[in-house]
């Protein structure tokens, strides 16, 4: 008993000293290499020149930093699926450890939630729910990795933009930022340097959900999934929810039902907006919070925000999937829902 207590005390002491050492290191680092005020750009920054033109739309394709994040997430998830989870599942075991166990537990939560709501359509809905959740979760938690959102190249476009918005602001060319290292003629820099300088840098990797293209794309997929499962479950009668011609023939409240159907169309499309902006707003706000707190109080304060963002990333991933699942389950039921969305 006494020995155990001594061990615990010793452990606690070590953790305390490690925390103190990290804080001291943070103070020294912030003093030597003070963080810059970040320049925040809403659109994703371009990392390359035009690579090719889209075949049909004719628009230019750049490699943006959010696209890099999505690709990394894709590679991570596919590698996880092919090289970790698939062999583990093939081994025929019933109980898993480590990351396979985590994935399995999350899938089980998703499965239970879906089974409680969707009934016989569970097996159709689960993969969509789970894919959305896993992709958004990976992409959201990427934001927490040091270097993401902060290490990148000086962005000429952003630089011009920043100068245009605020001519008084010093930009990188005026205050010399020490490059971390150089690839070819490109200087790789990090947010840091002199306090008066704005860092108009394009980070190599930026949290994908801070790009509206990503969230809108997901919301569009989710919207299409809802419509498709509605038609599969009810056939053409699914659209009666929107254009209720039969109700017109009925006396009394029939016309009101028809008008309600028109409103349903509006609310159906507003789902896309609310889905995409919810995820975008949460993660973009989190990114700004991390950057601003990091520059205002360079030492230790960011840890709390990181913990908050950890929770927000998980919740938003689950919520995006869960709302898709709930709306899909509603679409399979024939009575037209009273509350379609918020």
């Amino acid at each position: 008993m006494a020995k155990q207590e001594a061990t615990r005390k010793w452990k606690y002491g070590v953790n305390r000293w490690i925390a103190l050492a990290i804080i001291i290191a943070g103070v020294i680092a912030a003093g030597m290499y003070p963080p810059l005020r970040p320049y925040i750009s809403l659109p994703a920054e371009h990392l390359t020149d035009t690579l090719f033109y889209f075949p049909l739309t004719g628009e230019k394709f750049f490699l943006t930093n959010t696209m890099v994040a999505v690709l990394i997430a894709d590679v991570f998830l596919i590698a996880l699926a092919l090289f970790v989870i698939r062999p583990a599942l093939k081994s025929g075991k019933q109980v898993f450890k480590g990351i396979v166990g985590v994935v399995e537990a999350l899938v089980e939560v998703i499965y239970n939630l879906t089974a409680g709501t969707a009934g016989k359509w569970t097996k159709t809905i689960v993969p969509i729910f789970a894919t959305i959740t896993f992709l958004v979760l990976t992409v959201n938690w990427m934001e927490l990795i040091p270097g993401v959102d902060s290490i990148g190249v000086i962005n000429e476009i952003s630089l011009e933009h920043a100068h245009h918005v605020n001519p008084d602001l010093h930009v990188e060319t005026d205050c010399d930022i020490d490059p971390l290292f150089t690839i070819g003629n490109t200087n790789v820099v990090s947010i840091g340097g002199q306090p008066d300088c704005a860092a108009a840098i394009a980070p190599f990797v930026r949290a994908a959900a801070t790009d509206l293209n990503f969230t809108l794309g997901l919301a569009f997929v989710s919207f299409m999934a809802i419509q498709i499962i509605g038609v599969r479950a009810q056939g053409l009668r699914y659209f009666e929810k929107f254009i209720n011609i039969r109700a017109l023939g009925k006396p009394g409240m029939g016309k009101i039902d028809f008008i309600v159907g028109i409103f349903e169309i509006v609310s159906e499309f507003s789902k896309i907006i609310s889905f995409s902006f919810r995820l975008f707003g949460n993660i973009f706000a989190g990114m700004i919070l991390l950057l601003v707190i990091g520059t205002l109080i360079p030492v230790a304060a960011q840890t709390g925000v990181l913990m908050l963002e950890f929770a927000v990333g998980l919740i938003q991933a689950l919520v995006f999937g869960m709302l898709t699942m709930i709306f899909m389950a509603q679409a399979t039921q024939s009575h037209h829902g009273d509350e379609e969305h918020h």
């Binding site: 902006f277 919810r278 975008f280 707003g281 973009f284 706000a285 919740i315 709302l323 918020h342």
Partner: peptide
């Protein structure tokens, strides 16, 4: 989440 969406709209 639905309630929070309002705050998110404000933020956006």
């Amino acid at each position: 989440v639905f309630t929070e969406a309002i705050a998110i709209y404000c933020l956006v």
